[in-house]
Design a protein around this nucleic acid. Structure first.
Lengths: 223, 223
DNA sequence: CGGGCTTGTGTGACTAGATCACTGATCGAT
DNA sequence: ATCGATCAGTGATCTAGTCACACAAGCCCG
């Protein structure tokens, strides 16, 4: 079975899981299954908790907070080799969350059923460490988001975002998307980008930002 | 030993721990110890991770985020019957956190050493559920903080804070403390409170806010 | 090809919030 | 009674968010 072959080696792509005890590797590979989901799939949302722990093999999942007003902020992204850990074990208890997770690309993931997760946490120190490290990672991400929103200037945050998310100096995103990313309004982004453009740091066209002077941007971002 | 007597019954004060298996109750009571800390004690801070999981028996711990600028936001409070769970298992891995926990009152807590925590997580479903529920609680708190900071108006947040933290209609806090609580500047609080006072909702004196018209405040808070 | 439609962007006017630089008030300790 | 420290009030100014638009670019379809 090619699927079995695949599920046998994915474990080592997760930092910390390679030291999983041999018997438990079997448990994990036998009792979890690989799923493929198209981009834009809603992985979890208010009222829709997943009953599997997802370990991402390919693609990225964007986790964002929604406000009634319709505005949003991106909280963090889960990338290949990471897990959606906050969403499973955690959200089962308190349903009162207004965050949602969305497949940002087509994704491939290993889905670990709740029961298997529980067995593994019970029987493996390596797995526990993996889980707690994953929690830790997410929570520090949340701390950073809070720090950013509460204390950093928009221009700096925007410059950092552009640098971080640009691919070969090009960022495909609308002003509205960037606004949702940073939890601000579209107009704010438009004006800031206009200013960046005026300074010769970027060029813009519909849905695309091109970095012209990365050092200029970086100078601001590192303030 | 009176201390032993005390440690035997504290377990049931924690929601979910009462269903802990008998043998493990012993483990917990024998291998953890009750500590007393005076108000203002720094429980954890950047660079100072605790090696115990604290279960709070009395008092409250305030967890806040610090910015280099000196400004702060309160992230959440741990009250009696709750645990400082984010700070232990979690923070051990990623040291890069800028949050600190401070005893807001004199506190009494059961300290569970790291090793015992690990044994309990391994051997008890009840304890795991307790831990994951505690995580969940904190994380939803963080989500609320993010939502508030990013999307809610200061006047509303301030009104809510005053109602939430007032004791018999009286809140002992300086404008600077309220500013730190909400992650804003002192002047903003001063101006908002002046407005609340003008509307006859509160009375102020040095370090004290007295609620005069709770319905007025509530009307704003529930907007 | 020229309308319509949708989506993305630009802009002015205005409000809210943050920052800076102060002044004045209050309180406790000597 | 005075001094120093902490707390609160205020104007000026800047940054950010909101509202109400106009305008532009791509897309579909006859």
């Amino acid at each position: 079975m090619t699927t079995a072959a695949k599920t046998e080696d994915w474990i080592d792509r997760f930092n910390g899981l390679s030291s999983l005890e041999p018997g438990l590797r079997d448990l994990l590979t036998k009792r979890s299954h690989v799923v493929r989901l198209p981009a834009e799939t809603v992985i979890f949302a208010p009222g829709k908790s997943p009953d599997n722990l997802l370990l991402l093999l390919q693609g990225t999942v964007r986790v964002q907070q929604l406000a009634e007003s319709g505005r949003e902020v991106v909280l963090y992204r889960v990338t290949a080799g990471e897990s959606c850990v906050l969403t499973t074990a955690c959200m089962l208890a308190y349903e009162d969350h207004s965050a949602e997770g969305i497949a940002e690309t087509d994704i491939v993931a290993a889905a670990i059923p709740r029961g298997v997760f529980d067995d593994l946490v019970a029987s493996s120190k390596a797995f526990r460490d993996f889980v707690f490290r994953a929690y830790s990672r997410r929570i520090t991400d949340l701390f950073h988001v809070i720090e950013d929103i509460a204390f950093r200037r928009m221009d700096i945050r925007l410059a950092q975002k552009i640098i971080a998310r640009a691919d070969h100096g090009v960022l495909k995103a609308t002003h509205a998307q960037l606004a949702a990313e940073l939890g601000t309004a579209r107009e704010v982004i438009s004006r800031q980008l206009a200013e960046f453009q005026r300074r010769g740091w970027i060029a813009q066209s519909r849905g695309v930002i091109e970095i012209i002077d990365c050092d200029g941007l970086r100078g601001l971002a590192e303030t």
